[in-house]
């Protein structure tokens, strides 16, 4: 794991302010360099780094215009029989049509991610984008594993619905 890359991805996807991502990344890395010697257990570094970047993001917290404050209820996120779609997954194949579809879908996914309330966006980022375990995410965010699972499930339903709306 490269601390710089983690910090940059986190800043771009979770903080959502692309113009501030570089500053947030640098603040987090600086803090990491200053305090890394205090971390004695090797497994403690990764959660510590994610928490540090999250704190750097929160320090600069400035809600963007249009950033949601409320998450849709579970009922609002459930699929309707007529609304089920067939998403094209990103495909390693290189046909131009396929690439264009994948690029559009990824752009739509990034847009959908930005419209998730931050606590949900954090869980999706750590769990689905970074591939951390439920236990690790719970440790980083200092919430229960049940809470991680609940947020993740709702966030996934939300993202699926947003993509469906765009098809």
């Amino acid at each position: 794991m490269r601390a710089q890359e983690v910090a940059y991805r986190f800043s771009v996807h979770v903080c959502g302010h692309v113009d501030e991502a570089e500053d947030v990344m640098q603040e987090a890395l600086l803090k990491t360099f200053r305090h890394v010697r205090r971390i004695h257990h090797p497994g403690a570094f990764r959660p510590w780094l994610y928490r540090t970047v999250r704190n750097a993001c929160l320090m600069r917290r400035r809600r963007r215009a249009g950033e949601p404050v409320r998450m849709a209820s579970l009922e609002e996120l459930l699929p309707t029989p007529e609304g089920l779609m067939a998403l094209d997954p990103p495909d390693p194949g290189r046909s131009p049509e396929r690439e264009l579809t994948n690029t559009r879908l990824k752009a739509r996914m990034r847009h959908a991610l930005r419209s998730l309330p931050r606590p949900f966006r954090l869980v999706v980022f750590l769990r689905d984008m970074e591939g951390l375990s439920t236990r690790e995410v719970a440790e980083i965010l200092r919430i229960s594993e049940v809470n991680v699972k609940t947020r993740l499930h709702r966030a996934r339903l939300f993202l699926r619905q947003r993509l469906e709306e765009g098809t």
Binding site: Y8, H13, P79, L84, P89, L113, D128, R156
Partner: peptide, 20 residues
Amino acid sequence: FAADLRRSIVLCRAAGATTL
């Protein structure tokens, strides 16, 4: 629905691949 959700997770992972 399960297939769609699985695909959107794959897509989410792909969208998160950001190069520094």
